[in-house]
Nucleic acid binder design. Structure first.
Lengths: 349, 349
DNA sequence: TTGAAAGCGCTAACAA
DNA sequence: TTGTTAGCGCTTTCAA
């Protein structure tokens, strides 16, 4: 099918190794101008492109890195993926992405697939890092460079980039408090994490810290867990509304990401509530959909593309032999204030 | 790094070909139960996974198919991509996706990349098929199976799956007319197609056909063109509103996809209009965001996953040597009626 | 300045 | 029933 080096060499009337040296611009290839030209022309004429797998086999690297994401149906990951791909392209690497499809089983499968896939390095967003611990340590010894998003793995030599949700969450919740809210709920659900690690998400922790700092109660019933899709959040919040007495009902909800927040918003609207008068909502990720939503969603944002680039740069430098100590960078977050929040409606007693 | 067949064979104390035969379950491998077991165990112990590129090099196929999409930032393509990936996985193929990034240059680059990438087959969403014509015909002769989404390429032997926007567009526009609209605009902008092919999009054509069937005028000024992002649509429609006398202003707009429709909606809201009272909006694709939008977007929908599966099945059957005549399937569309449309506000003269 | 030959990891005839 | 060997397309050492 596709022309091979051999064919190019034959067409140009040179040896295969000569053609290789010229086409890959190997510095020790001292071909004469005329040979060089003949080979170039032959390659063009045939439309030659090196077979990257054959090449990779030979040089021991397929110049590919793997990315693990929980779920590409959440637009935040497609934004990440694109930024990573662009950064890698500049460095001559290609990207192959594996999706966990928002299940822990899927995540394990994806990790295994990546580790077995001849990639030169790995970038990971984990839902449950702990679950794969043995795998990485093994790979660490195998020298497969990795960088983690979100999870720090102390003393592993694995670089990571983190998002400090502290500031943004604090801004978000304090803004709600300032507006007069005292009965605030939280909806989480992205990560299908085993029970014992369930509350570990830093967004949740910060949320509770801020509440208690302001001496606000946090009844268990204000902790809403759903699946990871808009529909899941919708169903969960609908159920909450249907089963909760309006006087007990939260006047604001902090959702752990934008798509869940939008699911909540839709459920509230279908329940007859007005946003933001009857319910304030804040999301996380500051995806384009939060900005363009007909009722624009307030959201805790952070510099996605910069984070992606940083992680990619870490990986690339490791690939190039950088042996520095384990790196860890923290990015900050902030509240983007939009239409979805307002003072709570006055209680009509 | 990763263990090789050779190591497994050595570990098991057999010849490399014996190990290969057993691990790939080649039918003519008549190894004894005990050898078989020893090999399996050795492979497990070492965590052996065949190097798919070495294997592909040898068997002349990397069991990979390529997908070309205009832009993964439009969620409709991530839905397609996932459905395709799932269908391919069942057949033992992997997917590699190339993005045109909504530029014609990007599209050409992506096509070339795909053609040079050792894939066994190609699935394409084109923005401008004509631009790549020479490339496919060349590939056709090279026997690279392809299937096109949307574009039919008569007498090429290239299968395609099409979406008949006729019914859905008709339903959409007639619904608007029934509601009392007579001044209807259209916003398009996904495809950065050369001027001479600009109006070719069937959604646009159907739109105009329906209008004229109902003897409705269609002034050039109601034809709005923007870029492909929400922001682009937002900017374009904002500009339209700012520059158009309210009495001339359209009372409804049909946008060529959901994200553009949502951009239009946001622009209208920011301009002080109420949706749907002051402006009705209809999108296309019926993506989840249209359903969950706080003002739910009416949209022309079609069975995305089924379309994806059909195209994938076509390709797989070609891969398996199917020589049937060129296939073409048409899927129908229908209006999903949601909150974003209503009778036009009564003109206050 | 150019070419022959070995070998990356794998498969598949063929021989033993 | 198992092992030897050639070769997929490429790079690279070494010899010519």
């Amino acid at each position: 099918m596709a022309p091979t080096l051999k064919e190019v060499a034959k067409e140009a009337g040179v040896a295969i190794s000569t053609a290789s040296g010229i086409l890959t611009e190997r510095p020790d290839s001292w071909a004469s101008e005329s040979t060089r030209k003949r080979v170039q022309e032959a390659a063009n004429r045939l439309g030659y492109e090196a077979n990257r797998y054959a090449r990779g086999l030979r040089i021991g690297s397929f110049q590919t890195i793997g990315l693990l994401v929980p779920d590409l149906l959440n637009p935040v990951y497609t934004v990440y993926a694109r930024a990573i791909q662009e950064a890698l392209e500049k460095a001559g690497y290609s990207l192959t992405v594996e999706e966990a499809k928002a299940s822990l089983k899927g995540e394990s499968a994806a990790v295994k697939k990546l580790l077995a896939s001849q990639v030169d390095g790995i970038l990971c967003f984990f839902m449950d890092m702990k679950a794969h611990e043995k795998l990485f340590t093994k790979q660490k010894n195998n020298n497969l460079p990795m960088v983690f998003f979100g999870d720090s793995y102390p003393n592993s030599g694995i670089d990571n980039v983190q998002i400090d949700f502290g500031r943004g969450t604090k801004e978000a919740i304090e803004e709600l408090i300032k507006l007069g809210h005292s009965n605030i709920g939280v909806l989480y659900g992205y990560h299908p994490v085993p029970k014992e690690r369930e509350r570990a998400d830093s967004r949740m922790e910060f949320f509770q810290t801020v509440l208690s700092k302001h001496d606000l109660p946090f009844p268990e019933s204000n902790l809403l867990k759903s699946g990871h899709t808009m529909q899941n959040a919708y169903d969960r919040f609908k159920e909450y509304l249907d089963s909760t007495d309006p006087t007990d009902r939260v006047s604001a909800v902090f959702a752990i990401n934008d798509i869940l927040a939008l699911g909540v918003m839709r459920a509230a609207i279908d329940h007859g509530l007005s946003i933001p008068e009857d319910l304030s909502i804040i999301g996380v990720d500051n995806t384009p959909m939060s900005q363009f939503s007909p009722i624009a969603l307030s959201s805790v944002g952070y510099p996605i593309r910069e984070i992606a680039r940083t992680a990619t740069d870490f990986l690339i430098s490791r690939l190039q032999g950088d042996k520095e100590a384990q790196r860890e960078v923290m990015f900050s977050t902030h509240l983007v204030h939009r239409e979805s929040i307002a003072p709570p409606a006055v209680e009509v007693v």
